[in-house]
């Protein structure tokens, strides 16, 4: 499963620094996407760099969500980085809404 045109989903995980929180988020997103059977390329970065980037999905803490509106059509706000199942549900719902997952 991948977004049309058929290519891996591009996912950007973002935090204020681009070193820690976004990296943990990247690992969790990779786990969640794998369990959904979605082929994806996940990168992590800081919020300032993210503003100049494009992706299918951006994942960050809620406090960065507004900054990411221009980065990706799907922006997911995460409050608990330890909740991989919650992230999986958020991704599942968002990808279905986009028609990228059926």
């Amino acid at each position: 499963m991948s977004p049309a045109p058929s290519r891996p989903l591009t996912v950007l995980t973002v935090c204020g620094v681009g070193m820690g929180s976004s990296l943990i988020l990247k690992m969790n997103a990779e786990k969640a996407l794998k369990s959904l059977g979605v082929e994806a390329k996940v990168e992590h970065t800081d919020v300032s760099s993210a503003r100049g980037m494009k992706a299918d999905v951006a994942i960050a803490q809620g406090l960065h969500a507004d900054d990411l509106a221009s980065v990706a059509p799907v922006v997911l706000a995460i409050s608990n980085f330890m909740d991989v199942d919650g992230l999986r549900r958020q991704l599942d719902e968002a990808l279905r809404a986009q028609g990228w997952l059926s």
Partner: peptide, 18 residues
Amino acid sequence: EHGPYMVLAPGIALAHAR
């Protein structure tokens, strides 16, 4: 500057910089 980015989960924070 950016808000409490270091708070990862209920009760847990991870302080870090560059």
